[in-house]
């Protein structure tokens, strides 16, 4: 298993404000797979993503990415783990507004050991003609493409996407999903996508459904629907 999650527990608060968000989540993902983590608001899917991304510390359990155990890592070690292994895509893009598209991508290229070629990436994502524009000059889908390029330039082993289509309409959402599918095929990037959109699960290799802090159901799609054919996005 490329990604192994074993009995992960995570809680917040103390005494009267104590809440256990993850109650012992166990799952796994093979290298090169696209996986959706689905669940209602407050089910713990984003918390699980944050724990896998080293952005939040678990109370107990084990998370291994390509054989590396994350639990117990110090902040500096987690920082290096994210630097060397992960790419992030956010719902609201989180681009640097006073840097151009190209410069936003270069933020991550600067710290990558073996980065991808920027021009090729811009071409793949259809951003070549927009590379010198600022985020405010781009549409929502173009901004998300830029965010995807920024995440991919590091050539990450694992791409974590938190509601990547959450701020987009159905047409532009489809464009982004087609892109993610293309990237998965071209670069073999393992992807974990958190979403509450029910349609996306049809295009991925594996689906994990979380409810009340536990994995309620997980399965692999025998027949995947291409992103371009997804309905009801």
């Amino acid at each position: 298993m490329y990604l192994q999650v074993k009995d992960v527990k995570k809680s917040y608060g103390k005494d009267t404000s104590y809440i256990q968000v993850l109650k012992g989540v166990s799952t796994g993902l093979e290298r090169g797979q696209m996986c959706v983590i689905q669940g209602t608001s407050g089910s713990g899917k984003s918390t699980l993503l944050n724990c896998i991304g080293g952005l939040d510390t678990m109370d107990s359990g084990s998370i291994k990415v390509d054989g590396t155990e994350i639990f117990g890592m110090k902040p500096a070690q987690l920082s290096d783990y994210r630097r060397d292994n992960l790419g992030f895509i956010f719902q609201f893009y989180n681009l640097v507004p006073n840097l151009t598209v190209r410069e936003n991508i270069q933020i991550c290229r600067y710290i990558a050991e073996k980065p991808l070629d920027i021009d090729e990436l811009l071409d793949t994502l259809g951003l070549t003609e927009h590379q010198n524009k600022f985020p405010a000059q781009l549409s929502g889908v173009q901004q998300q493409r830029c965010a995807i390029a920024r995440a991919l330039v590091k050539n990450p082993k694992l791409l974590l996407c938190d509601e990547p289509t959450g701020a987009l309409d159905s047409k532009t959402s489809r464009d982004i999903l087609v892109l993610l599918e293309k990237i998965n095929e071209k670069y073999g990037t393992t992807m974990l996508i958190v979403t509450h959109n029910n349609s996306i699960k049809n295009m991925v290799h594996k689906v994990i459904i979380i409810k009340d802090g536990l994995v309620k159901k997980e399965y692999e799609n025998e027949k995947r629907v291409p992103a371009a054919e997804l309905e009801d996005l």
């Binding site: 952005l55 920082s79 290096d80 994210r82 992960l86 989180n94 640097v96 590091k154």
Partner: peptide, 16 residues
């Protein structure tokens, strides 16, 4: 703060 948080997510080291 948000910008600093962002680059910490990317894996920037404290010195950087």
């Amino acid at each position: 703060a948000m910008g600093i948080s962002l680059i910490k997510i990317f894996g920037y080291r404290p010195k950087e």
